[in-house]
Design a protein around this nucleic acid. Structure first.
Length: 414
DNA sequence: CCCGACCCTCCCCT
DNA sequence: AAGGGGAGGGTCG
């Protein structure tokens, strides 16, 4: 077990309107974050274990590096420089990493205002889901993660990704007894037994997709993938360059990236858009999944006539509609509405009701009191979503659509 | 453009 | 009390 050299906690000023990790890390754009302690999230990233906490004014972060003496650094996928030795250098490095990963440059509160001004539905739904940022994840990791997402749920996707890391990714260290592995390289997934092994691990038909995609990316080279990224949002250490103004259907670079990704096995339009948005920095990318399709029908008058089902043509029409409505960062706005529709966060929609019902737990979406919420949430590593709070769910759901209320109400009695 | 099949897990319902 | 039916951030042929 490699010993870790942990730096002290550092912090940077970030309001919850600019970033809410409790929402952003759980909304299904990244699949590897784990709760490492009360109110603390951790992830193996770029050769270290990054841990986070957040209060109403600051984001606190700490990096733990493998001790160079006992465990030589095992560089993950791409750009890990050999271990920095001074604590100061570690911290500087980690600060840059955090700023990059959380994509902290855009002014999110300002963007929310802009989207709310343009869209009454956004204005209605966004207030309880502030601080949802699009992460700048590693493109290769995003690619594999979203290949796993097809016809799947967030809980199982997370387990699959953890399994991938456990068996094929470099071990960075432990938090308590829990091992933290970085994401595997493409090459690590090209072995002759990978597909069969993944099949055995419960990946189902995605085992083949992952293996074949790994082989193709290994052949094309990671540079091929990286070169598809938005020059405005380049990898850490590369200078940004302009990528032009938004046009119908998205900018040329985005369309090219999307098209090239479609050549990979298990990558259709939706997965390609997820990679474009969350791995390649194309903010106008709008992944249209079943959730978004339902939102489009419910709130944006889709689902009739020409666009009665989610064909490729409808897919493009929905994405274009959202781009023209929300603008260049349409993918960011889309993610807010997507998150607002996740069952995981449904209790947030009726927080006031719970308080009225003399429930002890008060939920302040933007405040630290969210921890009360967190205590009751599953961690993604747990096997199933259990329900020690059926009663609350029942109360919650009475305010929601009848269909759901009926189902849950019956189950409550069971 | 429309289907069914595809791995697997959990859930509701009978 | 077992088991069908459906859905879960789709993709392929």
């Amino acid at each position: 077990m490699p010993s870790l050299r942990a730096s002290e906690w550092q912090n940077l000023p970030v309001s919850l309107k600019e970033l809410c990790i409790n929402t952003t890390l759980r909304c299904g754009q990244s699949f590897r974050w784990r709760k490492s302690a009360e109110d603390e999230w951790s992830l193996a990233l770029h050769g270290r274990i990054l841990s986070l906490r957040q209060d109403s004014e600051r984001l606190h972060y700490r990096a733990s590096f493998p001790s160079a003496a006992l465990a030589p650094p095992t560089p993950p996928a791409s750009t890990v420089p050999s271990a920095a030795e001074s604590v100061n250098q570690d911290d500087d490095d980690t600060l840059a990493l955090v700023k990059h990963y959380f994509n902290l440059t855009p002014n999110l509160a300002q963007l929310y205002d802009q989207w709310a001004l343009a869209d009454p539905n956004f204005r209605k739904r966004a207030p309880k889901f502030t601080g949802v940022r699009i992460l700048q994840q590693d493109a290769w990791e995003a690619l594999i993660g979203f290949i796993c997402s097809s016809n799947n749920n967030i809980s199982r996707i997370s387990q699959m990704v953890h399994n991938l890391c456990l068996h094929y990714g470099p071990l960075i260290g432990h938090v308590g007894a829990t091992p933290y592995h970085d994401f595997p390289t493409p090459k690590a997934l090209t072995g002759p037994k990978v597909e069969q092994h993944l099949q055995k691990l419960g990946f189902g038909y995605r085992a083949k997709y992952i293996y074949k995609t790994a082989v193709m990316v290994e052949e094309k080279g990671l540079d091929w993938l990286q070169d598809l990224c938005n020059p405005e949002n380049p990898p850490l250490g590369v200078d940004p360059k302009p990528a032009g103004e938004l046009v119908e259907g998205g900018r040329g670079g985005y369309r090219r990236a999307h098209e090239e990704l479609l050549a990979l096995h298990g990558v259709g339009p939706k997965v390609a858009d997820c990679v474009c948005l969350m791995g390649l920095g194309w903010s106008e990318s709008v992944p249209v999944d079943t959730h978004v399709w339902q939102i489009a029908q419910r709130d944006y008058k889709f689902g009739k006539g020409k666009h009665s089902s989610l064909t490729k043509a409808t897919y493009d029409a929905v994405a274009n509609r959202f781009r023209s409505l929300w603008g260049k960062e349409a993918g960011w706005a889309h993610s807010v509405l997507f998150t607002a529709d996740l069952k995981t966060f449904s209790e947030r929609l009726v927080a006031k009701v719970e308080v009225k019902e003399e429930t002890v737990v008060k939920i302040e979406v933007d405040g630290i009191k969210q921890e009360a919420d967190m205590v009751r949430m599953e961690t993604i590593t747990e096997k199933r979503v259990k329900r020690p709070f059926v009663k609350e769910e029942h109360q919650v759901l009475e305010v929601k659509e009848e269909k759901v209320t009926r189902k849950r109400a019956k189950r409550t009695k069971t």
